[in-house]
C-alpha cells in the first residue's frame, strides 16, 4: 500500500487535518488559501509516494499533474481574484473563528464515530478515512459560516480534497480516466468561479454574498 511507515503516514495525516482546521480558524482569506495549498501539496505527495511504491508510472505522472494544477494554477488564480477585490477578512457569520474551531474539533470526533462501521474492510486506514470525512465536514462548515464568496470556494476545494483523500484510502485510486476527468472539472470550475467573481466585483463591487439576497419565492 502506501510506501512509507505508519508513523510517517500519521504525520502526513496530522498535517492534512491540521491545515483543514487552520483553514477554519483563519481570519484572513489569504491564510486560508495558503493552508489549503499546503494541504493539497501533501495530498499530491501522498499519491506520488503510492505511485513510486507500486512502480506505477501513470499514478506518478497523475500526481505530478495534480500538483501543478491544484497546488500551482488554482492558488495563483484565486490569489489574483483576491488581489483585485482587495478582500482580506473571511467574513464570519453565525460563528466566530475560535468557536468554529471548537465545532470543527467536534466534527472530527464525529467523523471517527461514523467511519467505525466501515473499518471492517480496511482496519489499517482508520485515521485516513476519518480525517478525510473530517475535512469534508470542515469544508461544509466553512461554506455555511463565512460570507465571502472566495471562502465558500475554498470550502468546496476543501471538500474536494476530503473526497479525494477518502477515495485514496477506500480504493487506492479510482480509474485514471475518472480521476483525470474529476481533476479537470475542478480546474475548469475554479476558472469559471474566477470569471464569475470578476463579474460579481463589477456589479456589486465586493465578494460579499450578503448582497445576493434578491431572488426569493
Amino acid at each position: 500500500m502506501v510506501g512509507f511507515s505508519d508513523s510517517t503516514l500519521n504525520l502526513v495525516l496530522l498535517i492534512l487535518l491540521g491545515s483543514g482546521l487552520m483553514m477554519v480558524y483563519s481570519a484572513r482569506v489569504i491564510n486560508a488559501l495558503n493552508w489549503w495549498t499546503i494541504q493539497t501539496v501533501f495530498v499530491s505527495l501522498l499519491l506520488i509516494a503510492e505511485g513510486i511504491h507500486n512502480d506505477a508510472t501513470e499514478i506518478i505522472i497523475f500526481g505530478i499533474l495534480l500538483l501543478i494544477a491544484k497546488a500551482g494554477i488554482i492558488p495563483i488564480l484565486l490569489r489574483r481574484v483576491l488581489k483585485t477585490s482587495r478582500t482580506v477578512w473571511v467574513g464570519e457569520i453565525f460563528l466566530k473563528r475560535a468557536m468554529s474551531l471548537v465545532v470543527a474539533g467536534g466534527l472530527t470526533l464525529l467523523s471517527y464515530v461514523i467511519t467505525e462501521p466501515m473499518l471492517a474492510l480496511h482496519p489499517s486506514y482508520r485515521n485516513g478515512l476519518a480525517i478525510a470525512i473530517a475535512l469534508i465536514f470542515c469544508g461544509l462548515l466553512l461554506m455555511m459560516t463565512r460570507k465571502i464568496s472566495m471562502v465558500q470556494v475554498l470550502g468546496v476545494l476543501l471538500i474536494d480534497n476530503g473526497i479525494f483523500l477518502a477515495g485514496f484510502f477506500l480504493t487506492q485510486g479510482m480509474p485514471l480516466l475518472v480521476e483525470l476527468g474529476a481533476a479537470f472539472d475542478i480546474l475548469v470550475g475554479v476558472v469559471i468561479v474566477g470569471i464569475l467573481s470578476k463579474q460579481m466585483l463589477e456589479t456589486y463591487d465586493s465578494l460579499n454574498v450578503d448582497h445576493m439576497r434578491s431572488l426569493k419565492g
Binding site: 461554506m143 464568496s149 468546496v156 477515495g167 468561479v193 456589479t203
Partner: peptide, 27 residues
C-alpha cells in the same frame, strides 16, 4: 450573477457527494 453563483456552489457541492458515492461503489 446571484443565480449563477447559487447554482454553481449548490450543484458542485451536491455533485461532490455523488462522487463520494461513486467511490464507495468502486471500493
Amino acid at each position: 450573477i446571484e443565480a449563477a453563483w447559487k447554482y454553481v456552489i449548490l450543484c458542485v457541492v451536491g455533485i461532490s457527494f455523488a462522487l463520494l458515492g461513486t467511490m464507495l461503489l468502486f471500493a
